[in-house]
Design a binder for these strands. Structure first.
Length: 458
RNA sequence: GGCUAGGUGGCAGAGUGGUUAUGCAGCGGCCUGCAAAGCCGCGGACAUCGGUUCGAUUCCGUUCCUAGCCUCCA
C-alpha cells in the first residue's frame, strides 16, 4: 500500500509521491531555544519522528529539523537572566535534544541553526528584492504580499478580508499591513549581522525558507509543523520560497499536527499550567509520554491529563505483559517485521490509534498461543512494531519493576515472595496472604504463574 | 465577526452508506487455595433538526457547541 498523507494546501488526504523516486526530503519547524520544551512542543517532534521512521522503511529520507537561535524572545531571555545569548541557546539546545531523546525521538539528519545561515538568508532576501517581491524601507526589508497572487492559499485566507480586518497599528514603513519583515535593523546591544541594508537581523520566517533550500533543495516533499504555524509562518515561508524560486513549489505536502490542551485548557505561562518535558521525563518513562502523544490521531486535538497518561500506561502494561518472559535472540528480533496491519494503519496518514488497536490483536493472539514457536514469532512481531512506533524499548521486567523509589527493593520483594511460596507450599494461606497484603500496601502486585510468582509495581 | 478543524458508548479514541474498532472501567463465566494476570462472553454510541437513499453514525444542508488561527506561539 502506498503512503497517504493529508495535505493542508489541498485540504485532503492524498497518495504520497515524492519529487524524486525513492527519495524523500522533510522539514520540520523545530524549537526556538529560549526555554525548555513543553509537552505541546513535544507533539510535533514525536509525531513527525514516527513519520520519519515510517518513511525510512520505504525511502531514502533526508530529514531536517531546524533550531531557531536568533529571536526576540531569546534576546529578552538574555536580558532577564543576565546570561549571554550563546549560553542560553546552547543550554536549551542541549536540553531539547536530551528531552526529545528521552521521548524516543531519533535525531534528524540535519539540525540547521538560523545563526549559521545568515548569508543564505541575505542572498534570498536580495533575490526577492531583485525580482520585485520585496522592498526596503527605513532599514527594514519587507515582503510585498500584494506581489504574490497565491498569498493566502495555504491558510485559506482572503487578502482583502484580512486588510479589512487589520489592526489599526500598522508600522509606518509598511506599504500594506500584511507585508511581513524579512530583515530588520538591530541596535548595537542586540545581535546583528552586516547586510546590504545595514546591520540587522532576520525576520522569523526567512530562516526556514533559506535553510530548506540549502539542505533539501528548492522543492521539498514534506513540510511539517504545528497547526498554529499555518498562519502566518508557513504562509509566509511559502510565499518567500515560491517567489524566490520562480514559482517552483516550496513543499509538495504540508502536514500540520493538532493542538494539545492541558486538562481542557490552553497551556499558558500566565495560567501557570505549562508542563515541561524536562521535568516530566524525570518521573515518567519517556515511552509512556510518547504513547500518550500518539494515542490520538496527529491531526486531532489532544487533551493532556493524568487520565490520558494512565490510559497509555494501561496499554503498555498490556503489551509488556504479553511479551514478558519471552527471551528473543537478536537474530530472532531482526528477522521479524511489524504486523502488516500496523504498517497499513500508519501508512494511512499516520493513524497511530489504529496501529495500536492492531497491535493489541497480536497481543491477544500471543496471550492465547500455546505453541512456543508461535509465541516467539508473535512476540518478535510485536517488538518490531514497537521499534517502528518507538515504544516497547524497555526490558519487560524493568518496565514492571518501575521506579525504584519505594521502600522495598527488588531484593526485599524477592525475599518476601520466597517466604510466601514456602507458606503456600505448606498450605499456610493466612501467612501467604498477609505477605501479599504487605506487598500490596507497598504498591506491589503479585501474579502467580505455573513458572512461579511474578511481581510488578502498580 | 472571518477562516479551518471537530462534536462517537462511563472515559480515551479509530472507523464505516447496511455486518466486531481497540484500550481502560463495569457485568457474567473459565482459570486460581483466594487473588492478580490471562482467556471467553455481555451490555452500552455515533450533538441537533431536516434532506438524499430501500437503508445514514457514515453523504448534503440547518442549528447548537468546542478548539485553533486571524498578534509571538508546536
Amino acid at each position: 500500500m502506498t503512503i497517504h498523507l493529508h495535505d493542508t494546501l489541498r485540504g485532503r488526504k492524498l497518495p504520497f509521491e515524492p519529487h524524486k523516486e525513492g527519495e524523500v526530503t522533510m522539514y520540520l519547524c523545530g524549537p526556538t531555544v529560549y526555554n525548555y520544551a513543553h509537552i505541546g512542543n513535544a507533539r510535533p517532534a514525536v509525531v513527525f519522528d514516527l513519520l520519519a521512521r515510517l518513511l525510512r522503511r520505504s525511502y531514502k529520507l533526508r530529514y531536517a529539523r531546524n533550531i531557531t537561535d536568533v529571536d526576540d524572545k531569546i534576546n529578552q531571555a538574555a536580558i532577564d537572566s543576565g546570561k549571554k545569548i550563546d549560553e542560553i541557546t546552547a543550554q536549551y539546545i542541549k536540553a531539547y535534544n536530551d528531552d526529545m531523546r528521552a521521548l524516543g525521538v531519533l535525531p534528524p539528519d540535519i539540525e540547521p541553526r538560523a545563526t549559521q545561515h545568515i548569508d543564505e538568508m541575505i542572498v534570498m532576501i536580495g533575490t526577492l528584492i531583485d525580482k520585485g517581491f520585496a522592498y526596503e524601507a527605513e532599514g527594514h526589508v519587507l515582503f510585498d504580499v500584494s506581489s504574490d497572487p497565491d498569498y493566502g492559499k495555504l491558510s485559506k485566507r482572503d487578502l482583502r478580508e484580512m486588510i479589512a480586518g487589520a489592526r489599526v497599528e500598522v508600522a509606518p514603513y509598511k506599504r500594506s499591513a500584511q507585508d511581513f519583515v524579512l530583515w530588520k535593523p538591530s541596535t548595537p546591544e542586540l545581535p546583528g549581522w552586516d547586510s546590504p541594508w545595514g546591520r540587522g537581523r532576520p525576520g522569523w520566517h526567512i530562516e526556514c525558507s533559506a535553510m530548506a533550500e540549502k539542505h533539501l533543495g528548492e522543492t521539498i516533499d514534506i513540510h511539517a509543523g504545528g497547526q498554529d504555524l499555518v498562519f502566518p509562518h508557513h504562509e509566509n515561508e511559502m510565499a518567500q520560497s515560491n517567489c524566490a524560486h520562480d514559482g517552483a513549489p516550496f513543499a509538495r505536502y504540508w502536514l500540520h499536527n493538532g493542538f494539545l490542551s492541558l486538562d481542557s485548557t490552553k497551556m499558558s505561562k500566565s495560567l501557570g499550567n505549562v508542563l515541561l518535558v524536562h521535568d516530566m521525563v524525570k518521573k515518567i518513562p519517556g515511552e509512556l509520554i510518547r504513547l500518550a502523544l500518539l494515542g490520538a490521531h496527529y491531526r486531532q486535538p489532544l487533551d493532556w491529563s493524568d487520565a490520558a497518561l494512565e490510559g497509555a500506561r494501561s496499554m503498555l502494561d498490556r503489551l509488556y505483559g504479553a511479551i514478558r518472559g519471552i527471551e528473543l535472540s537478536d537474530a530472532e528480533r531482526k528477522a521479524a517485521d511489524p504486523p502488516a496491519a500496523v504498517i497499513e494503519a500508519l501508512e494511512d496518514d499516520l493513524n497511530s490509534p489504529k496501529a495500536m488497536a492492531e497491535l493489541f490483536s497480536y497481543a491477544r493472539a500471543l496471550n492465547k498461543a500455546k505453541d512456543e514457536n508461535e509465541r516467539r514469532k508473535l512476540a518478535a512481531e510485536i517488538l518490531a512494531a514497537g521499534d517502528l512506533l518507538g515504544i516497547l524499548q524497555m526490558d519487560a521486567e524493568s518496565w514492571f519493576a518501575g521506579n525504584n523509589d519505594s521502600e522495598l527493593s527488588a531484593d526485599d520483594i524477592e525475599s518476601l515472595l520466597k517466604q510466601r511460596d514456602e507458606a503456600r507450599a505448606s498450605r499456610d494461606f493466612a501467612t501467604a496472604d498477609s505477605i501479599r497484603d504487605q506487598l500490596a500496601a507497598a504498591g506491589i502486585t503479585i501474579e502467580d504463574s505455573p513458572t512461579g510468582a511474578r511481581w510488578r509495581r502498580s
